[in-house]
Simulated scan of single mutants.
Amino acid sequence: MKKIKRSGRLVDMTYFLIQRPHQLVSLSYFSERYQSAKSSISEDLTIVKEIFESQGIGSLLTTAGASGGVKYVPMVNEQEGRQLVKELCEKLEDKERLLPGGYLYMMDILGRPKHLNEIGRLFAAVFSQQKIDAVMTVAMKGIPLAYAIASHLDVPVSIVRRDHRVTEGSMVSINYVSGSAKRIQTMSLARRSLPEGSNVLIVDDFMKAGGTARGMMDLLAEFKANVVGIGVLVEAQDVEERLVDDYVSIARLAEVNQKENRVQAVPGNFLDKLKEVTQK
């Protein structure tokens, strides 16, 4: 790249970092990219850091030493987080999405890249201080959500299936009890999709009793993996027994009245978790 003015460097540097979250980029790389002295690059990064943090976009972490550099960590400030959660709750309260059994139609949310990108950033922010090697979910509806989160964490996605596929090679399978239906079901994960000892973030689009999340935790034990967190887009509130305790939910269904065709959605515990992260 030919030598450009500071204004051009700041624009290109900002775009470069946002496209590569959680990747360590050396000052030498930027120095060569812009044909500028490292002292100038350091000044540029200070400006970018101030803008990122003042606007709640994220933060730049600097690592010293020969192998050091700078890393962009996506974040969400409390005001923006509260607004995004409010908008999601309002979408969920659309009575047209109510399905038999108290479920909600959510593919209009999971199918819109803009909504998913915002939701992915919310989860990435609240889990930003965790060491995460992979995001895991169960096919099918959880897949777009998992990829949205993984893109902001810069980690791969491991997809658990309820059937065996010859194209995925050797599989590890377990039986688990569905938390809501109390049925014995099977879930499987390809052996080569997740290295042993990985730190994994479990993701689910909807949770009632948490049987699916509990099953994924048991499956991860077969890989000697560590569960660093559980992220749930929407959780049901009226549940007799929850099979998982520690999780982060964006929204909670406070009321689902099929007779009156009414849904009331309220914020989950996400905002409390976000506050804990930003205050550290």
Rank of each mutant, 00 (worst) to 15 (best):
M140Q: 08
F30H: 03
I202K: 00
M107E: 15
G211C: 01
A148D: 02
K5V: 15
I18T: 11
Y147F: 13
K3N: 13
G215S: 12
Q237W: 10
V160Y: 03
E78N: 06
Q55S: 13
K91Q: 15
V157H: 03
H164S: 15
E43P: 08
P144K: 13
Q129C: 07
M136N: 05
V160M: 07
Y72A: 00
D154Y: 12
I51F: 11
K86W: 13
S249Q: 00
M136Q: 10
S26E: 02
V126T: 04
E276H: 09
L219H: 05
E96S: 09
S188Q: 08
E255K: 15
Q264G: 02
V157F: 00
M106D: 05
S180F: 08
E32D: 12
D205L: 01
L104R: 12
A221S: 15
M216A: 05
S54P: 14
Q237P: 00
S170Y: 09
R192W: 04
I184Y: 08
K38T: 15
V48P: 00
S31K: 06
A265S: 10
G179Q: 06
V73G: 02
A190S: 12
E80R: 10
R242H: 11
L194D: 02
E32V: 05
D44I: 07
K280I: 14
G65V: 13
F127R: 00
F30Q: 02
P100L: 04
D238S: 14
D218I: 01
T278V: 13
I4C: 15
R214V: 07
K5A: 09
V166K: 13
E80M: 10
S67L: 14
I109R: 00
M136I: 15
N199K: 15
A139V: 03
A190E: 10
